[in-house]
């Protein structure tokens, strides 16, 4: 495990039991943990997007930006 923490991934991966008799091939499941869950209170002196970019993205704050769909899924994605 890396000790240098980058922006934490917003994706969590899980698997469920797959029986050899299950009709469909197994699927990796993942779910999104958006930044509002991890950091539920805004602090001061945060980075901001440029105004036009903020209007397009839907938030002024990079740390509260949650892209969807992610470019790749399953932990690495951002």
């Amino acid at each position: 495990m890396s000790t240098v923490e980058k922006t934490p991934s917003q994706w969590r991966v899980y698997r469920s039991y797959h029986s050899p008799f299950d009709p469909c091939s197994p699927r990796t499941r993942y779910f999104n943990v958006p930044p509002n869950v991890l950091q539920p209170f805004q602090t001061s002196a945060r980075k901001q997007f440029a105004p036009h970019e903020a209007l397009r993205k839907g938030t002024l704050w990079p740390e509260y930006y949650s892209p969807y769909p992610p470019e790749t899924r399953g932990g690495e994605a951002e």
């Binding site: 958006p34 930044p35 509002n36 869950v37 539920p40 209170f41 805004q42 397009r56 993205k57 839907g58 938030t59 509260y64 930006y65 949650s66 892209p67 969807y68």
Partner: peptide, 17 residues
């Protein structure tokens, strides 16, 4: 739709606050 989804994230944040 991505814009609308992000607004849900921001609203949730503000309700938590």
């Amino acid at each position: 739709l991505r814009f609308l989804r992000e607004r849900e994230v921001v609203h949730s944040l503000r309700f938590r606050e």
